[in-house]
Amino acid sequence: MELNWGLILATVASAMAAVVAGIGSAVGVGMAGQAGAGVISEEPEKFGSVLVLQLLPGTQGIYGLLIAFVIATKAGLLSGGSAITFDQGLQFVFAALPIAFGGLVSAIWQARVAVSGIGLVAKRGEESGKAIILTVMVETYAVLSLLISFLLVNGVSIG
């Protein structure tokens, strides 16, 4: 039986975007959540700002999902698959790289800032806005990765 390498590669690309970026977010949200629980045990009223900080490293996973979905739609993976050549499949794989790894690494580093930010909120609750902004600075690179991944996926010509 002949394998449809194009379709397989497109599936790999889609899965990779979701999984690798998702791992980053899972680790990140987990780290921030642990730090947050400590603060909430002392001061439950800070739940709101801590929750926002915990959520921030979670966006990379969503960006990953987004690219995964765009690839899946474009390659017709959700409806049985369209004719994808080997080259196109490989293009999808490389197009998924930015958000996969940009997302993975930025989520974890963003979580580190979020953890420190949660420490800041514990000491000075009124400065939570600044903690959020410091954390979002890291996300810039996830956003840029998302953009490039999208443009590259968009640029694969099918049909």
Partner: peptide, 16 residues
């Protein structure tokens, strides 16, 4: 470029 990327994220997530 983040303006575009964030708009993308709203539209595509909604679509998903």
């Amino acid at each position: 470029a983040r303006v575009f990327a964030l708009g993308l994220s709203t539209g595509v997530i909604g679509n998903v």
